[in-house]
Design a protein around this nucleic acid. Structure first.
Length: 114
DNA sequence: TGATTGACCAACT
DNA sequence: CAGTTGGCCAATC
């Protein structure tokens, strides 16, 4: 909101990184957290995504999966298959709720960020 | 206001 | 090898 934003919350940072994810690429909660400097806060990334629906901006949370490449948050997309559908729509193959060739589609925030 | 939880990860037992 | 625990930050109970 318009309230003084002296320091960006972890959530805001997560949102920004998530929005930077290129189409057809995916990243992991831990990668985002690590990029933010606190790999221990991977849980927060997921928590942020949970609140992402509140965010005024659209967060491509479907491009964020766990380090296994597994669609752990698919249940939070309104429909269990929505997340998979979105990813497949971007050319990512999903098998058994897990991204095929996750490494190939993996995008590290630090890669594009500077 | 203290305790619990959460779309995770890694280490320990 | 599988289950448990600790850790981080913020939100909910």
């Amino acid at each position: 909101m318009d309230y003084s934003q002296k320091n960006k919350s972890f959530f805001e940072l997560v949102y920004e990184v998530a929005k930077l994810i290129p189409r057809g690429r995916v990243t992991s909660y831990g990668a985002i957290a690590a990029y933010l400097g606190a790999k221990s806060s991977a849980r927060m990334v997921g928590w942020a995504m949970n609140n992402s629906h509140r965010a005024a901006r659209q967060i491509p949370a479907h491009r964020v999966v766990n380090r296994n490449g597994q669609l752990t948050g698919k249940a939070h997309f309104g429909h269990p298959d929505l997340m998979q559908n979105l990813l497949e729509n971007e050319g990512i193959l999903i098998e058994n709720d897990t991204i095929v060739d996750f490494e190939k589609h993996f995008w590290d925030p630090a890669t594009l960020e500077r």
